[in-house]
Write a protein that binds this DNA or RNA. Structure first.
Length: 431
DNA sequence: TTAGGGTTAG
């Protein structure tokens, strides 16, 4: 039998997880101690017998992947039936969180792990490793470290992938010393770090701007005969560019070629963004040239950065040229492309053009997102077109999008004499 | 499989 139980509304979005969770965390019923742990499959029979209004669906892991709401509902349902979840149930929930495109919610994870403690279930290697990965991805390395400590206290070696995720998370929060310590620990577990583990460590050094340490990682990789891949080089190129060492970056690009590692559009968009942030938008052309010399076609992200780089420095003509070139290359502009263009024109005071682009965007069939609305509403505010602003707020509301009220409140005094008008728009728009 | 990176407002 492969059935998963759902309450009605099986398509409810992730927000449903929150309400499931409150039920999930209700104290266990008193009779619980006589109920043995059961697997999720067994729940189907029990719940069906109780006549709960449930739907039975395919519960192969593929059906639950990326559906933490479903997994949490399952746990909640079990709790309602007074059943003790087992390892598999928690693994199912964690797997669904890990397969979801969004990083796991840290508060959800800590509730889940305290729930795990409350049922006095001793987690196995799989569950512990999944917890380390989940906390690492939720940018909570402290929690991940404490699970690692628990793992080692139980005499269990965590999965290598979990350790690498933790190194990555530590590096991301600038805690390179601890990342280094875990990296050293890998060898004690009798496993040789390979490219991916090195890259995780490298990321930390790049993040903190520790260029010397980053270079040393590359040296050590060579010493241990571990081949750098495209990401290894990209990380270092990114670091060099940020440090203004464009020549070093170019040397690395050449080195990539010699080692048959192909650079891609990603690393060039990072270089471009770095120049943009330094105010060196003119170098965009050189970056494009360098790219073409390497036989790499700019992709949508690259064009978006390029349009932004021109837009930020008032070069609307170049921005529009890049936009045209992008479409000539057969790349369909996305919502970010349009937002960037609209904002660039609005910031330059060319509101008519901004509005025209907004119309064009909608005509192309793309739906405006929260950022689009914010950009256009700001532009309307600059023009003191309060009625149209109100219409846009209404449209946002209809789409279930929430404006960033605090931001507009701050911005309101900027609209000459417009604060009162702005507030009246906000007050007469009911979200 | 020892991850998996980039862009837009404020």
């Amino acid at each position: 039998m492969t059935m998963l139980l759902l309450s009605p509304q099986p398509t409810t979005a992730f927000s449903a997880a929150a309400s499931s969770l409150s039920r999930l965390l209700l104290p266990l019923p008193r009779h619980n101690f006589v109920v043995p742990p059961v697997s999720s499959l067994a729940i189907a029979a029990v719940s069906t017998a109780t006549g709960d209004p449930i739907y039975a669906v395919d519960s192969r892991p593929s059906a639950i992947n990326s559906r933490p709401d479903l997994a949490l509902r399952l746990l909640a349902l079990m709790r309602r039936q007074g059943l003790l979840p087992d390892q598999q149930n928690y693994t199912l929930v964690l797997q669904s969180l890990l397969h979801s495109p969004d990083p796991p919610d840290p508060s959800l994870l800590s509730l889940l792990s305290s729930d795990l403690r409350s049922v006095r279930l001793e987690p196995d290697a799989r569950l512990l490793s999944d917890l380390i990965v989940a906390f690492s991805r939720a940018a909570d390395p402290d929690a991940a470290l404490s699970v690692l400590a628990q793992t080692q206290a139980q005499g269990i070696t965590p999965k290598f992938s979990a350790a690498v995720e933790l190194i990555s998370a530590l590096g991301n929060s600038g805690r390179v010393d601890e990342a280094e310590a875990i990296f050293a620990e890998l060898r004690h577990w009798g496993l040789q770090p390979r490219t991916r583990a090195y890259n995780a460590l490298l990321k930390g050094y790049v993040k903190t701007g520790a260029l010397k340490d980053a270079e040393q990682v590359l040296d050590e990789m060579e010493h241990c005969s571990v081949a750098p891949d495209e990401r290894t080089y990209s990380l270092l190129i990114d670091a060099y560019t940020n440090a203004g060492r464009w020549e070093s970056a170019r040397i690395l690009i050449k080195e990539m070629e010699m080692n048959d590692v192909r650079p891609n559009s990603y690393v060039f968009s990072r270089i471009l963004a770095s120049f943009r942030d330094k105010g060196e938008w003119q170098r965009s052309f050189a970056v494009l040239r360098e790219m073409r010399n390497n036989g790499i076609h700019p992709d949508r992200h690259f064009y978006n950065v390029m349009i932004d780089a021109f837009g930020k420095y008032n070069c609307l003509h170049h921005a529009m040229d890049a936009f045209d070139q992008m479409r000539a290359d057969g790349i369909v502009p996305d919502v970010v492309t349009w937002n960037t263009l609209i904002d660039a024109h609005s910031k330059a005071g060319r509101h008519d053009q901004a509005m025209k682009l907004f119309e064009e965007m909608e005509m192309s069939g793309l739906a405006p997102c929260t950022t689009t609305f914010n950009i256009v509403i700001n532009s309307l505010g600059e023009q003191e077109r309060w009625e149209e602003m109100k219409e846009l707020f209404q449209r946002m509301r209809e789409k279930g999008l929430l404006p960033n009220v605090g931001k507009f409140d701050d911005a309101a005094p900027l609209y000459t004499g417009g604060r009162r008008s702005f507030i009246s728009v906000m007050q007469t728009t009911h979200f």
